[in-house]
Simulated assay, not measured.
Amino acid sequence: MFCHNNFCEQTKLCVVSNFFDIIKIEATKVFNGVYHVLNGEINVKNGITPDKLTFSALESWMNDKIIKEVIIAVGATFEGEVTAQYLKTFLQPFNIKISRLAQGIPIGGGSLDYIDEVTLKQALEGRKDV
């Protein structure tokens, strides 16, 4: 588990694929919890199965019962989707709040003509009140 300063909220955990994801999230100055790095994403075709990632270390942290909320912050790729679904199933028995980063149309993304169907679907499903 990684914390960027002494004031991290120890009950909030953000699960990322790699250390560089932490740098990107930290740049937003929004999240003040702790991080868990998976060291990749599930990709069975390339031999990256859950046992090759850091799920056992994550389970140890979850068994400590400190974590109350987990934010899944893995890539918006096929491998990221597989990993996110696996994480959701993996975390459900711990009876905590589980969320995933919102996905959708990027700022400056231009016309809807250039947005793929999956991204547009996620943007519609993840919409929020203004």
Rank of each mutant, 00 (worst) to 15 (best):
Q122K: 14
G47C: 09
T89R: 14
F19I: 15
A27F: 04
L112V: 12
K52D: 05
P106E: 09
R100L: 05
F19E: 15
I66W: 03
D21Y: 07
K52T: 08
N6T: 13
K29L: 12
A57K: 13
G126P: 02
D116H: 08
I115Q: 03
G108K: 09
L58M: 07
L58A: 00
G104M: 10
K121H: 13
G47F: 11
T89Q: 14
A84G: 12
N46V: 03
L38V: 07
G40E: 06
L13K: 02
V74R: 02
N39H: 11
F55Y: 13
I98V: 12
D64Q: 15
Q103A: 07
A57L: 12
L101T: 09
E81T: 08
I71S: 03
C8V: 07
N43I: 00
I42H: 01
I98T: 02
G40D: 04
I107N: 05
A102Y: 07
A27G: 12
F7S: 15
E59D: 12
Q122Y: 13
Q10Y: 14
N18K: 15
K97V: 14
T119Y: 11
H36I: 02
D129S: 14
N46Q: 08
I48Y: 03
E26G: 06
S17W: 06
V82F: 04
N32Y: 12
D116M: 07
V15K: 00
F55G: 06
E26H: 11
E26Y: 11
Q92Y: 05
V30K: 15
K121Y: 12
T54I: 09
D64K: 15
Y35M: 00
N63G: 08
G80F: 05
T83W: 00
D129I: 12
K29N: 15
N5A: 08
T28E: 04
I22C: 09
E69V: 02
A76P: 12
L53P: 05
F94K: 03
A57M: 10
C8Q: 08
Y86L: 01
G108C: 09
Y35A: 02
A27C: 10
L91T: 01
V34W: 02
V15T: 03
C3W: 06
G110A: 06
Q10H: 10
L53T: 03
